[in-house]
Design a binder for these strands. Structure first.
Lengths: 105, 105
DNA sequence: GGTCAATGTACCCTTGTGGTTACGTACCCA
DNA sequence: TGGGTACGTAACCACAAGGGTACATTGACC
């Protein structure tokens, strides 16, 4: 999952995911939506592909990229133990007026 | 939240968070747990601090770092729309034998 | 005040990353 | 088969990132 977090660090790559979340797209379409030239996008797509975040399907000369959302499940899982913590804090914040601190460690 | 995802890209920094998830720690303790020298850790800690992921409290010469899990809520939120997607896929996978494809787009 | 302990910062160096232009390649169509 | 289209890859370049060593700083303690 290291590769996924690494891939997510770049804003351009996040934009690509954002687009693919709506619908699959060709490399050209993605490149048109980004402020960088096509070869750069191509390399971003390679990173995303190697991280398992996207899938490619070839249709004649076109390469159609599609999101593979399952790849993000690893991040979600990594986040899990932290989620418990910040939610506890939120709870504490919200209920702290009404009740005393029950289960504070 | 960009800064957070950026910060999460580095494995050393993730290790720091992992440690702080258990208990607060001094810079020295964190450095001892990592394969890099103290100044390097110090810089990682600065990145984490600037991303809002950790808090520092000074105790004499020691700097005690503590996790700020709320900073990760942004990542969780970013993940949200994707979560729906991969969970649908899971559902589809699991129920696809029993039922037909109900709400496939 | 002098010294030790804990830590951050400055500086340097090497590597990684992201961008560009130029080129190679595969496929359709005439 | 020749040409246009849609890509990826190679080569190159600039800069950011991360590591190390040396030094500055701050607080405790004598």
């Amino acid at each position: 999952m290291d590769a996924v977090l690494q891939a997510l660090a770049d804003p351009s790559r996040r934009t690509v995911l954002e687009i693919l979340r709506r619908h699959p797209a060709t490399a050209g379409e993605l490149a048109a939506a980004l402020p960088i030239a096509r070869p750069g996008v191509s390399r971003h797509l390679r990173v995303l592909r190697e991280a398992g975040l996207v899938d490619v399907r070839q249709d004649a000369q076109r390469r159609i990229y599609a999101l593979r959302p399952e790849a993000l499940a690893g991040v979600d899982q990594w986040l899990e133990p932290y989620r418990a913590l910040w939610q506890n804090r939120m709870d504490a914040l919200h209920t702290e007026v009404a009740r005393g601190k029950r289960e504070r460690k």
